[in-house]
């Protein structure tokens, strides 16, 4: 077993410092060291997308990184999406209005993927939305309402 290593990360704007084993997955670090359990774990081999977070703005799989690698980086998770406690972001609202979640387990990863996608593609077509979602598996919804929600959020964001 190797020695613990210090990690300092900013998560949703708050700086956290911990000492962890190098093998600790970033997903486990966020969930069990920092208690940010909104990020979910579905496969631990990078396929399902439930654990998607944003690392310096880019969506990545938190199950395919070691926590020690996040040292000095800025992470955004689902807990940071809402503008204030008790309120939802435009994207989150659109997911509720379009019934884009059922069990809700895949939802945090999808929100993190889509939040980045809409920054790059503010006026997407349905086809573009479907491509953007294709790296996040959902077993409940059949995706249709998720696609609707993303298009709805895009429209609302454009219309301000």
């Amino acid at each position: 077993m190797s020695a613990r290593v210090a990690v300092t990360v900013s998560v949703n704007g708050t700086t956290h410092r911990r000492e962890v084993e190098p093998r600790l997955l970033l997903s486990d670090f966020l969930r069990h060291e920092l208690g940010l359990t909104g990020t979910h774990v579905g496969c631990e081999h990078g396929v399902c997308g439930a654990c998607t977070i944003r690392l310096d703005g880019a969506p990545v799989r938190s199950c395919l990184m070691f926590a020690v690698q996040a040292d000095g980086h800025a992470i955004a998770t689902v807990e940071g999406l809402a503008p204030a406690p008790g309120r939802l972001s435009v994207l989150q609202e659109a997911f509720r209005d379009a019934h884009a979640l059922q069990c809700g387990y895949c939802t945090p990863g999808i929100l993190m993927t889509v939040s980045a996608f809409l920054e790059e593609t503010p006026d997407p077509t349905e086809e573009e939305v479907r491509h953007a979602l294709s790296g996040n598996l959902c077993r409940c919804t059949g995706y249709q309402h998720i696609v609707d929600a993303v298009l709805l959020a895009a429209r609302r964001l454009r219309e301000g």
């Binding site: 880019a58 969506p59 799989r61 953007a132 790296g135």
Partner: peptide, 9 residues
């Protein structure tokens, strides 16, 4: 090659 989340890394 996989998906954007994978290619980002």
């Amino acid at each position: 090659v996989a998906h954007p989340q994978i290619r980002n890394r």
